[in-house]
């Protein structure tokens, strides 16, 4: 709304021109930046005074980061971890979605399988690591098994929940038009459950990452987890932080990627629900 000249004159006479007081809440990104700078510099100052065996400091970590990235070994370990991660996760996705669809659609499958699924889902998967190492040895296969088990249940449970909430109307319409069971699966149930499946995949990525790191730390032979153990046993604290930072980055990139994929593949969310 534009002020007319009379109003402007009146305002000028009343001398209401407001001077906005400085408030910290108007400059939140500044506060954010300042907070990071303060913490990092405190860490730097404090860290330099402490025995470097116990605590490192940001500039030393940055130096170690550059140093380690130059050696090829670091790259190889990271790639090895990611390869295992990919194989285990893909297997978990395939089986998780397949079983979730089966259990959600057929009550017989649900009742046959749900005691095991619920029990295994509630078991902390890390507890299975010693057993899996016993069965599969210290190599790649036991790591794949752990990634698989960590990723399987979030996908399975979410697919299952997604299929169960597909509205019965949609399925009935499909049937009324003579769609076969296969068509109902691929054209109705899967698309309707997709938002749930994607949410499950997001969970699975995080859990699988924890699974593989724990397994690698426990076997301590190859991979980023093994590097963590190696550097911490050698009391090389500055180097220790390098895989930690790299793992955080991998986690952020992966979950960001899945989020993008989710928006791409399942932008809709079914709102009307009926069992």
């Amino acid at each position: 709304m534009a002020l007319n000249t009379l109003e402007q004159q009146a305002l000028a006479q009343l001398d209401l021109s407001e001077v906005k007081p400085f408030r910290l809440t108007d400059h939140l990104s500044f506060v954010r930046g300042a907070s990071v700078v303060v913490v990092l510099s405190l860490w730097e100052i404090f860290g330099r005074q402490v025995n470097p065996l116990f605590l490192s400091y940001p500039s030393a970590i940055a130096r170690a980061f550059v140093q380690l990235l130059e050696t090829r070994e670091f790259e190889r370990q990271a790639l090895g971890s990611l390869q295992v991660f990919a194989v285990g996760l893909i297997a978990a996705l395939i089986l998780g979605i397949a079983l979730g669809l089966l259990m959600g659609r057929y009550r017989l499958a649900e009742y046959l399988l749900d005691p095991y699924v619920y029990a295994l889902d509630a078991t902390p998967r890390v507890a299975l690591i010693p057993l899996l190492l016993l069965w599969f040895g210290l190599g790649t296969s036991s790591k794949i098994a752990i990634v698989f088990l960590s990723g399987l249940f979030p996908v399975l449970m979410n697919t299952f929940a997604g299929v169960r909430t597909v509205s019965a109307q949609l399925v009935d319409i499909g049937r009324a038009y003579g769609a076969r069971e296969g068509k109902i699966f691929t054209k109705i149930i899967l698309p309707a459950a997709l938002p749930f499946v994607m949410a499950g995949i997001r969970l699975a990525v995080g859990r699988a990452l924890i699974g593989i790191i724990t397994a690698e730390m426990f076997t301590a032979v190859t991979g980023l987890g093994a590097l963590l153990i190696r550097y911490s046993s050698a009391l090389a604290t500055d180097k220790f932080f390098v895989p930690v930072i790299l793992l955080a980055l991998i986690g952020v990139v992966l979950s960001g990627g899945v989020e993008k994929l989710q928006k791409r593949l399942a932008p809709w969310k079914e709102t009307e629900r009926a069992l």
Partner: peptide, 9 residues
């Protein structure tokens, strides 16, 4: 950061 990674520290 995956919290397991901080366990050795």
């Amino acid at each position: 950061t995956p919290q397991v990674a901080l366990t050795p520290l």
